[in-house]
Design a protein around this nucleic acid. Structure first.
Lengths: 364, 364
DNA sequence: ATCGGTAACGTAATCGATTTCGGAAAGCAA
DNA sequence: TTGCTTTCCGAAATCGATTACGTTACCGAT
């Protein structure tokens, strides 16, 4: 079955394509009789507008591009899910690419997406990404770009991120409230801003409660894996004064820590309390269940997309673009790995942030 | 910076757009001198072909659509990753949608994808999907459709699936080899073909080893959750003759079973051995590590995409479409939850399939 | 001087839909 | 009959790139 065109309908009825087009769009200057004829013929011939012809005329693709480092990752799946939700709700489609944490591939896919046609791009930068010229190039062609999660201050664009500082601050404050006095931190690689802020939140929480910062309690993970959590926790337990609380930069590291603690015969949370970060589903599957700081992935996807679609619209209306930087709160979910005092808070309690207020939203 | 068009270059050089177009495509009937002028001007004006204009002419979008029930799922992320890999490798882009396991939404998104323009569609049917008329409609418009994972015999299309029967057969055979004599099955809902085949594999393995099928050892999960695994395992343990082996339809159910076993003080794998299905990352994070049947998600995505791109090409060349049905083997990964005998196989050993040969590939 | 050939480029149709401009026909009043 | 407004529709330009078909100019050959 061939797709019918306006011309097919026009020829069938002995009118011109202009009439058919207007009839289908319910223009007032087409008679009711003609409209009905056209509608009937369109139905009969299985007419559907040709997507590319429409887009060529309207100069609008109704497509947003998405670049994430890695799709196979619970957080990014969550974000993408939020993106699709909002985009499809407003009649947009989602073109998906991944950079595999490679700077070079990130450049390549953004260019490919640009070449294939889209109205705007949502990007989470790869860990390797050094410069943002490839994104600035898109902006030069009037394509709005919105960053999420891993962002860069070098690019003048809207962004949506988790409040890593506050999440870490809450996690460590919670550990202290549980009676921990020697809290260690299994930190992430120094490059991504996210892990730096988690480290900063850890330090700030210690300081706020008058505890000294002890460098021997901080170990840096490289690939942020279960194995590293295991190895580095063994290392921490071998210290003359081993920690009685561990704040891990990720859930896989936290679970690695739990494995090490079990090996060494420490009770969790009595001897050592543990909190992870990201709140993957696995936190509720292991024993004990792992306390973790939940990142609002779905919400990040939603808000980033709303920002992007708004900027696309502003650009179309020739309004000036105003960028905004959104920081979404992280939520500590307390579970068995750190819950010592039943009186402290319910097992599903949410500890409200006690972090010093950082600027959380600004316009540029 | 406005995107330059062929006309901009033509005007700048005092030639026609036809000359510019041919110069850029290195036609032989354009002089070297002119070509160099055009190339230089194109560079200077930042020319890039307008995607929609090209696609309108060539009648090719270089885009494939993908519909999955749920993106936030390790298996589907894996599949999508494979799809993107192959598609981008051949210069195609990926338009992603999810049906949220809703039949109605599946219909809506396929129609939206059709309307937005693509060359072919990859679909994993939702659990709710009753008819495939919406997919047949695409085929009527000369759009190839390839199904994966959840497929339908009603649609004359290529497909790629896991060999659920063989995976289940191998899992249960392994349990029997470990000395289990009373193997229970936490089965999935009856609707998806996948879980029916896993059930069939379970039954076949029992029969092949001369064991009776005992209906009281089979419990049906509905939402295939951790909670169900927990509850139904308690139920099984309360039987007069409780099972000494459990084959679960999914990993979350298997882990729920482990939780129940720990509660009841059963040793794993000594008292009860457990095997799950899908081999999610979490299997290696819990204690004991969970044996599971790995589904080749990435490979399913790759092969489905290769099939689709081939059909797109065949259609373009006016060759007859030949559909193929691919069944990929599942791989049992033996870990602590079922490994009783060290002499049986290495901890990372792979049990080769001993399943009776079913037809695994056929052409239609 | 004429012809054929060819290198190099222009003309214009085409893809399918949208939209501006305009025009014919019909109706009505003076 | 003239003039004017409605009503309804056609012609043609447009979006940007591609391409079949012509055309020009210049060459050497006859």
């Amino acid at each position: 079955m061939k797709r019918a065109t306006l011309r097919d309908i026009a020829q069938a009825l002995g009118v011109t394509v202009a009439t058919v087009s207007r009839a289908l769009k319910d223009y007032p200057d087409i008679s009711i009789a003609t409209k009905q004829l056209v509608l009937a013929a369109a139905e009969r011939l299985h007419y559907a507008p040709h997507p590319m012809a429409v887009k060529l005329r309207q100069k609008s693709y109704r497509v947003v591009g998405v670049v994430v480092p890695d799709i196979v990752h619970p957080f990014f799946s969550d974000v993408i899910s939020g993106i699709i939700e909002v985009a499809e709700g407003q009649g947009y489609h989602v073109l998906l690419s991944q950079s595999n944490e490679s700077f070079e591939k990130e450049i390549r896919v953004t260019q490919m997406l640009h070449a294939t046609g889209m109205d705007g791009l949502l990007v989470c930068l790869s860990n390797e990404t050094a410069t943002v010229d490839h994104l600035r190039a898109l902006q030069d062609y009037d394509l709005p770009v919105v960053l999420f999660d891993k962002i860069s201050a070098d690019l003048d664009a809207s962004s949506v991120v988790t409040d890593d500082f506050q999440g870490a601050y809450d996690a460590v404050t919670h550990l202290l409230a549980q009676g921990c006095t020697r809290v260690a931190h299994l930190k992430g690689p120094p490059n991504p801003e996210n892990t730096r802020k988690r480290f900063a939140g850890y330090q700030a929480a210690l300081a706020a409660h008058g505890l000294p910062f002890r460098p021997e309690y901080v170990v840096e993970c490289h690939d942020v894996s279960h194995a590293e959590g295991l190895a580095f926790t063994r290392q921490l337990l071998a210290l003359p004064e081993p920690p009685d609380g561990i704040f891990a930069v990720s859930d896989s590291v936290a679970i690695g820590a739990l494995t090490a603690l079990r090996e060494e015969g420490r009770r969790v949370p009595a001897d050592v309390a543990v909190v992870g970060f990201s709140d993957w589903a696995v936190c509720q599957l292991v024993e004990p269940q792992v306390s973790s700081v939940a990142q609002p992935g779905y919400e990040i996807g939603r808000q980033a997309t709303e920002l992007l679609l708004r900027e696309i619209q502003q650009l179309r209306d020739d309004q000036p673009l105003e960028h905004s930087r959104t920081v979404l709160g992280a939520t500590l979910r307390v579970r068995g790995s750190s819950q010592r005092l039943v009186t402290d808070e319910g097992s599903r309690a949410v500890l409200r942030s006690a972090a010093p207020q950082l600027p959380t939203a600004a316009s540029a």
